[in-house]
Each structure stands twice: as structure tokens, then as C-alpha cells.
């Protein structure tokens, strides 16, 4: 199985305010009643994008200036809560290619990497600078350089970001979906199974 290396992603960005954005917020549980991930994109952030009467709210994703944004900017602990892969799947299907945040919840981070959606960590000050640049000019293009671990803006910002080396390596070498490598080690898996008392 050969996968495309993800060395950089770029696009216009949208800032989603708040810390601890949980996966229930990203995809409310009622939309998880599905047996495929297809069609989840339209329900991303549904309960904060629409009010009780189904009317669009002032959420940034409803703001026409940010329509088509493919980079998500966020605060700390983005994606906390449930392990539902439906959350990164819905963001991916909504059209996001990468996320820049102050920090990520671990399960969400891992799920996103496996979907080839790089999640990079920037300082609060740098997130604020990117946010200001995007707010001032929504046409600003952000590039997440996964190789060099930098985020650059078309307006001249160039900030350092971090990501665990294993995730970076997996993305840039096209091994973000580990299934083939896991399968390749079948002999070692069988040996381990035989050695464990309870298996």
C-alpha cells in the first residue's frame, strides 16, 4: 500500500475560538448514527453553527469571508473528549487539510495523523498572530510545512511549530496509515500471541 507523503499543506484559514473544543462539539453524537463516514462533513460543528431553529449562527464557519478555508486555527486541547474518529473525519470531509492549535488531545491527534491531516502545535502568541493576520485579511494563505515544522503566511509570518517526531516522520514518509507496516510484522505478532498466557 503506497500513500502520498504529506510534506506540506496550505490554504486559507479560519479561527475557531475557545479552548478545550471537545469532539462532541466537533460532531454532535446524534450524527454518529451512521455506518459509513461519508456525509459527515456537513455536520461538523453543527450545534454551534446552527441555533435551535436551524438558523445559521455567527460561527466563523458560517462567515462567508472564511468560506473554503482548509486550515483550522484553534486554542488549547483541541479535540478532547470522546475517541470518535467521526470528529477528524467530519473536519476532513468538511474540507480541512491541517490544523494549527496551542495543543491537541492525544486520541484526536492520532486519529488525524492517520487521516493524513497534520496537526501542529504553535505557541499561544503565535496562534494569536496567525489569527490576527487571518482576521485582517481572510485571503491570507497559510502553509503548514511539515518537513521544516514551520507555518508561513502569505503576509510574511514565519513561525516555528512542533509535532511529535513519530507523527512528522509518518506524514512525510507516506506512512501515516500504519496498516501495511503492522501487517508486515505478522511473524512477530504470532510469536507475541503465543508468548502471552491469556491470548
Amino acid at each position: 500500500m503506497s500513500l502520498a507523503p504529506i510534506t506540506q499543506v496550505s490554504g486559507r484559514a479560519v479561527y475557531i475560538p475557545g479552548a478545550d473544543i471537545d469532539t462532541d462539539r466537533i460532531i454532535p453524537a446524534r450524527f454518529m448514527k451512521c455506518i459509513t463516514f461519508d456525509g459527515l462533513g456537513e455536520f461538523a460543528f453543527f450545534d454551534v453553527r446552527f441555533d435551535e431553529h436551524g438558523q445559521p449562527t455567527a460561527h466563523p464557519l458560517n462567515d462567508p469571508r472564511f468560506a473554503g478555508a482548509s486550515i483550522l486555527l484553534a486554542g488549547a486541547n483541541f479535540g478532547c473528549g470522546s475517541s470518535r474518529e467521526h470528529a477528524p473525519q467530519s473536519l476532513r470531509k468538511y474540507g480541512f487539510d491541517g490544523i494549527i492549535a496551542e495543543s491537541f488531545a492525544e486520541i484526536f491527534f492520532g486519529n488525524s495523523t492517520t487521516l493524513a491531516m497534520p496537526c501542529v502545535i504553535a505557541s499561544a502568541a503565535d496562534v494569536a498572530a496567525l489569527r490576527a493576520a487571518v482576521a485582517a485579511d481572510p485571503a491570507t494563505l497559510l502553509t503548514i510545512d511539515v518537513m521544516a515544522l514551520r507555518v508561513r503566511s502569505s503576509g510574511g509570518l514565519d513561525i516555528p511549530v512542533t509535532m511529535p517526531e513519530s507523527a512528522r516522520e509518518a506524514l512525510v514518509s507516506g506512512r501515516w496509515d500504519p496498516i501495511q507496516e503492522l501487517l508486515d510484522n505478522v511473524a512477530a505478532i504470532d510469536a507475541k500471541a503465543a508468548a502471552l498466557h491469556y491470548v
Partner: peptide, 9 residues
């Protein structure tokens, strides 16, 4: 694994 992660049973 190649990326440094552990393959855990």
C-alpha cells in the same frame, strides 16, 4: 515501527 512508535500487541 519506522516512525519510532511501538507496535503494541
Amino acid at each position: 515501527l519506522a516512525d519510532g512508535r511501538t507496535q503494541l500487541f
